[in-house]
Design a protein around this nucleic acid. Structure first.
Lengths: 213, 213, 213, 213
DNA sequence: GATGAATGAGTATTCATTCAT
DNA sequence: CATGAATGAATACTCATTCAT
């Protein structure tokens, strides 16, 4: 009988927003962003069409919120804040983390792939994300050495250092590129497999670590 | 002035169809299949919307025709009709052909990626393609050893044989999988780069060949 | 701490209703009735949407209540209850009162203009108001000589009498019509000016009085 | 059997656009711009909803086109291109033209009133129209003495000159303002009357001319 | 009395497809 | 063979109104 408190309203809002974002992410990843209708999302989330607009200004705002949330989750999981060089163990640890992310963030990564693989204007804001990271760390300017680039830099330095030490025959840039395409191929395989053969995947990630560490 | 012969009409027809397919493929690859409108295609091909329907029953029929054509081109370029085992030279030759295809069929491969990365019903027919090859070789049933699978089989046999001969430490299945993800990563890199660094790519493909042949 | 008396509750209720009506009138007048949303009103009045419906059955009921209130204010300010003929001084006094009303009831008059200038069904009830005065004096039938018409009648009689006395060249109906359009034009000018030049307006109203008294 | 020529298509387009604009103007004027739905327009014009969008980008674009057309018609009818001062005959002629416009352009003028009497952002472009005339005479800058202002200037000069010559008691600015509100009141009366008493209106316009010429 | 989450009918707009010429 | 006007089903989004708390 007594009216709901502000706190209760806040909780309702947050739970509902999370529900809508979860459902929408699932649909976006599987049906494609443009093919997913607000009606679909509403039906799957068991809410009315209108309610979505109580929480998000538009379909695009919903997409942005989902990306924002997921990017934050990914970054905070990776938690890269490394000033010196990567040790071999840290390198291995990093690959393992990536592997876990690939398996835990499949829907988000499918959505991301989908959006990044289009050239049209609407998708540009996404590229901005992956390059500038401005929403996650608003203090940084495009040109700073913030997270996404920092990762790349760290890895390149790792390969440069390894080359110095071990004097392998291949130059470090080539080595980094081999590493990059191998991990990319592995990522695609994981993201687009439904379940898949775990032993097989485990064997692959071990070989990647072994080969490039 | 003289009335065109049936042959001439047929040629005009075929040229127009090819034009429409070319334009559509370009738009599909860059804007996305669902985002590309018939109006856009018509405008870019400098024909009327109605004419498109003179040549293709629907937007989906146009898509199928484009895929059909490109799949045929790919298969006939690869020209795999190999009964015995792949020699090392043939393996290298195969990788080189793949590399050339990646660079020459970028728009088609982008379109393909786009469609394969969706789970929804409309995209199912595409998976059918990649698995059954039914349109290209309508006689085959899913289970036959037709082209796409034949390639896989040949490659697996290649790695099995190599393992027997050279007795490398890794089992052939694992080796094949490493090869698969490396090539996949390379393919994605090539398909989605605009121009890109040719020397760098050449270095990569050489290393792939070296590593897996 | 002590429980509020019924009287206090009633006062709170009435103050809240007045607040809502004030805010709504302002928004209706400036944004337009149809363009003003209940959400806007609630936000500007610093109450919840639900509360509005506690006081008014619907948006239209709110509109009617606002009109009702304003019409009553206007009528009670004009306080026309005149049985005989208008004297010259009374005529001048009437114009002065109109002038004051124009300046004090701008928002209401803007809203009224807005509604009267539409032919659609929804606006019909307003015409009913201006012609029948049924809400203000529910006993009257359209055809009675109630207030709005009474004013017209009084003014027409004033011009008829003036014609008899002074024998001006123009017939009284024509004179009334000139008076009507001049006052109408003046009214529009005042209602839709923001602030405006007071001296200029004062000069105009003086000339109107001078010309028609 | 033979396909339509470009000319035929152009004619169809122009007739249909005119039809849609005519119907829409009528509805906008009577129901109000915001209350008029595209469905209503389509139904009244006996076309499908979609067709409107073949000719106009949006509801607002349709509105702009209607205003543009009507403004052009009004200006070309008034055909004010007067360098010197207005003679008495020209002044009378001008009032007569205004009177004719008021009767012939009722729907447009109702629409215009409706839009000008709202403060919201969407209506601002209209004020721009009435003040800058930029669409009609694109060469002019806001500040030039282009048509709408030119009319005002001409009239003010007319009253100034008249004052010099005849030395009436009232200053010319006051006289112009009286003229302005009288004509405004007359305009409103005409625009919002349905048919109305022609003799009565004719008498009014004669008196206006007589009084102010 | 008061809140704001939830609903759903309604609105502008898009676009594949049809068809008269 | 070719055109583009015309259609209508579908889609994103709005907003008055209801209702559980």
């Amino acid at each position: 009988m007594s009216p709901r408190t502000k706190q209760q309203f806040k909780e309702i809002r947050e739970e509902k927003m999370a529900l809508i974002m979860d459902v929408a992410l699932e649909r976006f990843a599987n049906e494609g962003y443009y093919q997913t209708t607000i009606s679909h999302i509403a039906k799957h989330a068991d809410i009315s069409k209108g309610l979505m607009y109580n929480y998000f200004d538009s379909k695009e705002a919903l997409l942005k919120a989902i990306i924002h949330r997921s990017v934050n989750e990914v970054y905070s999981y990776l938690d890269i804040d490394h000033d010196g060089q990567l040790s071999t163990d840290e390198f291995e640890f990093f690959i393992r983390k990536i592997d876990i992310l690939l398996k835990e963030k499949k829907p988000f990564l499918r959505l991301l792939m989908q959006l990044l693989m289009q050239n049209d204007v609407k998708a540009q804001f996404l590229k901005a994300y992956s390059e500038s990271d401005s929403l996650v760390h608003p203090g940084h300017e495009p040109g700073d050495n913030y997270y996404p680039l920092k990762i790349i830099t760290l890895l390149k330095e790792y390969f440069a250092l390894k080359h110095e030490k071990k004097g392998k025959q291949n130059d470090p840039e080539s080595e980094f590129n081999m590493f990059y395409i191998t991990l990319l191929g592995y990522a695609i395989k994981i993201i687009y497999s439904d379940g898949g053969d775990n032993d097989l995947d485990e064997n692959l990630i071990k070989r990647i670590i072994e080969k490039f560490k």
